[in-house]
């Protein structure tokens, strides 16, 4: 008889609590069916998350805007320069006379590593953006591989470029003047242009290529490896595309300047020497 007292008490206590709880509607309400609208609301949150924030933005940008921006960049920028070439024409300097050693061998090697890998990055990048014209498949898949390898080479070259040129690329007060007169490219007169070893345009291109290149490398890493939340990937894609468009635009500027706008300017990147006649006008503040 005594053995039953303790279990009996426990049972009574349990039943009593249950009864009280049930009468107050605390215990069993939670086990009733919850409205399915609430469940669907919760499920939607898990499905789509905050897709509206970046998912929708990315979808809208990628479906229309990005390809239009790139189309504008690769058509309008060259067209402007064609106009410039026809109306104002190139600058022609004598390549005779005193020669100044401008780029050492190491700098030239780094420059051409960066140049070739960057050109490949631009070409394969544009190939991916206008992929529907090519039709995808093996060609574009190899294009992506080339994009990856070139990106690795360019990232390393960009680091070296930072090492060898960052000091010369710091902006100086007279760069503001250079910007105001657009580097003297809008007039046919040969007046000395305020610029040190590098002019403001070259400096801007340098920082865009190196620092911007690093941002491209990081966002590109996310896009390639998919190591990140969907929102990280979406943001990476948005940054990669906008910055890519800007870099291609300035790349075209750089190509035009070195190949066409200043006749023979590219020679200094091959031999390392610039002629005095060119320096006194285009890099008037450079001490040699």
């Amino acid at each position: 008889m005594k053995k039953l007292i303790l279990p009996g008490c426990i049972l009574f206590w349990a039943m009593a609590t249950l009864a009280i709880a049930q009468s107050q509607g605390q215990l069993l309400t939670n086990f009733g069916p919850s409205p399915s609208t609430a469940a669907f609301h919760e499920i939607n949150g898990l499905f789509t998350g905050d897709w509206q924030q970046y998912g929708q933005l990315f979808t809208e940008l990628q479906s229309k805007i990005f390809s239009q921006i790139f189309l504008l960049v690769v058509t309008v920028v060259p067209l402007i320069f064609l106009l410039h070439y026809l109306v104002i024409g190139p600058m022609i300097f004598s390549h005779e006379g005193r020669q100044i050693y401008y780029f050492n061998l190491f700098a030239r090697c780094i420059h051409w590593c960066a140049a070739i890998s960057f050109a490949l990055l631009v070409l394969t990048g544009l190939l991916i953006i206008f992929g529907s014209l090519v039709g995808g498949g093996v060609l574009l898949r190899s294009g992506r591989t080339v994009h990856l390898i070139s990106a690795a080479i360019f990232s390393v070259s960009a680091l070296f470029m930072l090492l060898i040129w960052a000091k010369d690329m710091i902006y100086a007060p007279y760069d503001f003047m250079w910007m105001l007169i657009m580097g003297g490219y809008l007039s046919k007169k040969k007046k000395p242009v305020p610029a040190g070893k590098f002019n403001a345009g070259q400096k801007s291109w340098f920082w865009l290529a190196t620092l911007g290149g690093m941002v491209m490398a990081v966002s590109g890493y996310f896009l390639y490896s998919f190591q990140g939340s969907p929102d990280t990937l979406r943001l990476s894609a948005i940054i990669h595309n906008f910055l890519g468009a800007a870099m291609i635009a300035v790349f075209i500027v750089h190509l035009y300047m070195s190949l066409f706008a200043i006749k023979g300017a590219i020679r200094s990147m091959i031999s390392g020497y610039k002629a005095e006649a060119e320096l006194t006008i285009l890099h008037s503040r450079f001490k040699f």
Partner: peptide
């Protein structure tokens, strides 16, 4: 035709597009 860029995954609200791994260069 697919080049495995992954844009569809970023656009999809439901996570439906899936990508097999283990290709060359981790592509």
């Amino acid at each position: 035709t697919c080049i495995g860029c992954g844009y569809c995954f970023m656009a999809c609200p439901f996570g439906a597009p899936q990508f097999p791994s283990g290709q060359v260069f981790g592509a």
